[in-house]
Design a protein around this nucleic acid. Structure first.
Lengths: 111, 111
DNA sequence: TGAAAACTTAGCCATGTGGGAAAGTATTGG
DNA sequence: CCAATACTTTCCCACATGGCTAAGTTTTCA
């Protein structure tokens, strides 16, 4: 119960932190440099950089260094894969609910 | 940047663990007792119970004890709220992509 | 009543995580 | 060429997390 689902592990735990979700939100508006990302937070640069690394390892964000500035962009595929997992489970649950309703209806008709 | 998003924090970090995602998956098929949930894992009961508690605190799962067995059920609303966050961000990113495409097209026409 | 079943609590341990300060490296503008 | 900029590396710390065992507690069933 582990190895094969490592991607989801990383994505969900990357999104579990509010600072990282805020970073993702900002990157949805367009690419940002590391210091631009740091600016709205009361956080030291090394700490923010760590968050960026976590987001990169989860595949949610990519970054490239040109000259002395590193620019980060969002990578929507990981976001979509995560949504897919949730969607699948919600619809699975929905199906079960439908079956239950059908079952109850059958009981009602019998009686 | 914190207090208001605590629900999402808890939901995402609950789903970051593969054991807990597996529990959620099984509960999508219907309610289960704690020991039924524990059965497929090589994990001691107290450890599994901890996972259940985490899932409860995130709002993903509810449980009720009747007699000596505690039965767990899934609570789809937290799942849906989480999907909503993802969906919102994906579509936000999509809009930005559209704007970029429109921009590039304008540039092409000019030239 | 008394043993088995089904949790539940308590406490321990190793590792991981989020935060920081300090010092280092590489680019750039004057 | 030198100072400022923009990271980056290297530690360090406190606390949270996931796992365990051992010892309860509460119900149920014979």
């Amino acid at each position: 119960m582990a190895k094969f689902s490592t991607d989801l592990d990383r994505t969900f735990s990357a999104l579990a932190d509010p600072t990282r979700r805020a970073i993702v939100s900002r990157l949805c508006d367009g690419p940002r440099s590391v210091s631009e990302l740091a600016e709205p937070f009361e956080i030291a640069l090394p700490s923010l950089l760590k968050h960026v690394r976590v987001l990169e390892q989860s595949g949610l964000v990519r970054s490239e260094k040109i000259g002395r500035v590193r620019t980060c962009t969002i990578e929507p595929r990981a976001l979509q894969a995560t949504e897919a997992w949730l969607h699948q489970h919600i619809s699975g649950w929905q199906k079960r609910l439908d079956r239950m309703e059908a079952h109850i209806e059958r009981m009602m008709r019998k009686k």
